[in-house]
Design a protein around this nucleic acid. Sequence first.
DNA 1: TAGCTTCTCCTAACACGATTAGGAATCGTC
DNA 2: GACGATTCCTAATCGTGTTAGGAGAAGCTA
Lengths: 214, 214
Amino acid sequence: MLGEATTSWQAKRREGTRQEILSAAWAVARQHGLAALTLREVAARVGMRAPSLYSHFDSKHAIYDAMFEQAWSEYEELARESDATVPAEPRAALRYLAWRFFDFSVADLARHQLMNVRTIPDFTPSAGSYAPAVRVLDALHVRLAAIGITDGADIDLFVALVGGLIDHQWANDPGGTRWARLIDRAVDMYADALHLPRSDISSSDESATDQEER
Amino acid sequence: MLGEATTSWQAKRREGTRQEILSAAWAVARQHGLAALTLREVAARVGMRAPSLYSHFDSKHAIYDAMFEQAWSEYEELARESDATVPAEPRAALRYLAWRFFDFSVADLARHQLMNVRTIPDFTPSAGSYAPAVRVLDALHVRLAAIGITDGADIDLFVALVGGLIDHQWANDPGGTRWARLIDRAVDMYADALHLPRSDISSSDESATDQEER
DNA sequence: TAGCTTCTCCTAACACGATTAGGAATCGTC
DNA sequence: GACGATTCCTAATCGTGTTAGGAGAAGCTA
């Protein structure tokens, strides 16, 4: 009955196979599509049969749930890492934030669908899995506040703007750059609307830090 | 072997049950969600068993396909009807177009998902069903051209902007107005970026034609 | 009217999903 | 060395979309 009966290395091993399963699930999702993921295939990739997965996850949705959390944690990590690199100048910062999320979202369809599109019928992330997503959004609030953007409506508009570009990039030109090209313009448009100070010095400063040849 | 063996009233009756099936499908989709639609339930609503639907549709996807076409045709019709009401002044016209599509999309989740979100695994609309959507987009091009917006990138930006607002309205505040409130601002922001002439007369002209109390 | 074809519906059945029940092997711990 | 938990298995259930094959009605042709 006691939960602590398992030794620590047992727990570690258990966690290991859990990760193996998740990793297999990601592979399947990327290959066949997020919604086409089947327990049989995931199980096969880790050398199991489908029912055995239930020793590690309560249900298929629980797997999606864990993937959801992983995806947002992944972005949270990336954001944290690159946080020091965010330019100080407001407009450059906005561009940076927009590009960061855009690139991340556009790099992996399955991940993007899981994070931002309700692709899976009936699936709603649990509160726990939602936590990283909330933290990311909180961090964005802080970032934007540093620029002077604190109004909720302004933030919503920024989010919708970038999100719209991502969705349309995936929907209408997957793998291309048709909507990516619009990001800088979109951000400037937004910055103008918010009367952010213009950086008159030059248009090619640190904003081009980790954006290659677009 | 000849297809014309059926009389015209037979064809009419056949078309009738086809519509009945589609109408039942919409009802199920609206009630249980688009993806949760099952052939058994649709069939039950029209007094049939699931396999009998195959006399009228090749597959479940064919039903989705017909629904997709209906949805876009519906919007096309609405757009055509209200076309005469589109204000002449550029900014008012943009607001009008944005609101028109926003309201339509926000009125019906299942319809919106089918039209604009890839919710159904493996489902891709056929070329035929896509036609109304293409016509709608063409009509938008014409409309925008009348305002002086002809650059493809500009159009893409407008579409992404409005689409982003709709998606976020559904995702984060379904039934609310949190993102709806942003539309006018978003459109103005866009119009400013395109250097559209400002309507200095007053801010409450015909743009409020069929928008009630928002 | 008889015979035929065609159309539309049916019941059975299949394949393949997720999931549950129940058992065998493994492996620490007493 | 026996116990108990853990982790895997096979077998079976249930709900999907879909196919096979047949029954009955209704039209057209003689």
